[in-house]
Design a protein around this nucleic acid. Structure first.
Lengths: 344, 344
DNA sequence: CCAGAGCGTTGAAATGTTTCAGAATGACCG
DNA sequence: CGGTCATTCTGAAACATTTCAACGCTCTGG
């Protein structure tokens, strides 16, 4: 390893070849098919590389190869740990395939998403995983049509033109409500919105189905809409809940995600009520902070890492397997009962 | 925009040039110095580009330019939202400079860090921001010696061979303890470790200084060491706290970061004690979840985004300004008082 | 009518890698 | 000793872009 502050420009294969007294094709062979170069030569080349401090130029490699050694994930909301966990799962799979992962954040804005997709196309990434602002955006077809594999994560796009990984949200809604019914709750709030988000609609639908099947009157499942799936919206939903007359007030709330649930939990406790005694709470996603809350949160667990890992696998299959057929992987969520819904 | 499923390979400048009836130099000019090409020609070229669905090949661009249009941030711990907030700040600055940000996670492991740095050098990134596992790692010099600007984030490296951004952790420790003294606490725990982390040492040092200056006996500032800065370590510290005989038990705890504080909060409330009545808690970092906790957490706020943004600015200066001199930017943290230390 | 300026455009060179057809060498067989 | 093979190595071509010196054209002023 050279110790001087590296004089001129960074050395290329050509320099290494000259230093080792071989042709540049041989240097390339040492890196890419070492088995076909004689042991002595190989050693000589390797010494030259480390003496010169040679570092492969990835752009040149990519240019030649026509594609990069990178996957990308465009996440929807960087402030929600759920998406980072998904990203971590993707990264594991990418690592196994010796690929890098480029993480972008659309921040729920279509124009940011578009900027990211544009850039990723310019970079000729091997494939894109995305939790899109709008699963039906034509931009996704555009990307796909260019031959870049696209996998939709945690959303579903009708028509099956894409691979996707998601969780059965209707089922998730059902088990959340069934759990609350089990615990004896007869008046329950569903906290979540806007309904333009497919997730929210389906979780609500599952909740309603379970409610109806238990023979409960529809009016006793109260929908408290929110403007977004954030902690502060959860708090404000809590204020609205507290404002209800005691007789009409639900004894439990099922929140469309954990951030809402945490906000609701905070507001409830802050206003002097007790959880679960005065209000039981169920969240969705089971992010780490759900278990870490002051009253550990019961939540519908999505296999977050597994979601990412499977998405990446589908992506790689699409990228490398000529017989690839699109697949919609669906996971079954699981209820994790904790203190926020303990028996009263 | 072409509607067919894009036949052959993706078109290059050459194809665009042919389609528009100009030379490929002109196509390049349309993209890079549009002011020097005649309006008619420009329009013709642009039409050809969109008809063919031309997308610039970033690798070729980079190869020619010698460097990529990308910054990178190697974060220390992907499970701590603090680092994601720093990353968000970096991204803002990168966006302004029309650069992409590559986010990596070393997961506190030196070998992962090394793998990432290697890859980033191969990609010829414009510069690297890093919260290193070990600020004195020679690998950083190695990268720097290759001409890649490096900025150390949220750590300090003695010797000044690098730019860095950090907050004054000693001061942060002081204000946390001064706040607790103000609130009347006379026996306080410092929760945090391992001491190999510079942050932990300095926050503890600040705490001790403030404690001594207030004339308090050193023994009444109890150090509860932890093995890491995580929620679960916070919980276990809480158990140790509860185990202390009442007379020796602190009435307040200052935690080296918010994750510890959240864990401690959970354990404390879970064991039936009240916060702040039985135990007041101060965290450090002021991540969003601190304010969202069931008992909103008093915390020492680091300007997380600002940290990232400033780091990126220093990096860009180093990358573009030949007269650049290394700079150690230090921010003054600020105490944000919330319910977890409200008057008793 | 010409010199010179200014504008637009061209085409070749250069960037660093991988690949591949073929050359060089030596070993072995008949 | 000629021929066949296997083993190593070579050098040119290809990838898509940017840059830059040079070129041709049209004006303008003399």
């Amino acid at each position: 390893m050279a110790q001087q502050p590296l004089t001129g420009r960074t050395p290329s294969v050509k320099d290494v070849a000259a230093a080792a007294g071989v042709s540049l094709g041989t240097v390339s062979n040492v890196m890419n098919r070492p088995e076909m170069v004689a042991a002595g030569t190989k050693e000589r080349v390797e010494r030259a590389m480390s003496e010169l401090g040679f570092v492969r130029n990835e752009s040149a490699r990519q240019l030649r190869a026509g594609t990069s050694r990178t996957l990308a994930y465009v996440m929807l909301d960087g402030t929600n740990p759920f998406f980072h966990d998904v990203a971590a799962g993707i990264e594991l799979a990418a690592e196994d395939a010796d690929l890098s992962l480029f993480i972008c954040n659309s921040d729920s804005r279509a124009e940011r998403e578009e900027v990211h997709l544009d850039r990723l196309m310019q970079q000729r990434v091997q494939g894109i995983l995305i939790t899109p602002v709008n699963p039906d955006s034509p931009m996704l077809d555009e990307v796909s049509r260019r031959g870049i594999p696209v996998v939709i994560v945690d959303r579903i796009r009708a028509g099956g033109g894409f691979c996707s990984v998601a969780v059965d949200d209707v089922f998730g809604g059902r088990i959340a409500v069934e759990h609350l019914l089990d615990k004896g709750h007869r008046r329950v709030a569903f906290v979540g919105g806007p309904e333009s988000i497919g997730q929210v609609r389906e979780r609500l639908q599952g909740a309603r189905e379970a409610w109806a099947e238990a023979g409960m009157p529809a009016d006793d499942l109260v929908h408290l809409p929110t403007a977004a799936l954030t902690v502060s919206e959860g708090r404000s939903a809590g204020e609205r809940l507290s404002g209800l007359p005691a007789r009409r007030r639900p004894t439990a709330a099922f929140c469309a995600n954990d951030l809402l649930a945490l906000g609701l939990l905070q507001q409830t406790i802050g206003s002097g009520q007790r959880v679960p005694d005065d209000l039981a709470i169920v969240g969705f996603d089971d992010i780490d902070f759900a278990a870490a809350a002051a009253v550990p949160l019961t939540s519908v667990r999505q296999p977050r890492q597994e979601l990412g890992r499977t998405g990446a696998r589908l992506l790689l299959d699409e990228a490398t397997n000529p017989d690839h057929v699109h697949e919609q992987a669906t996971f079954i969520p699981e209820l994790v009962a904790r203190a926020s819904t303990a028996a009263r």
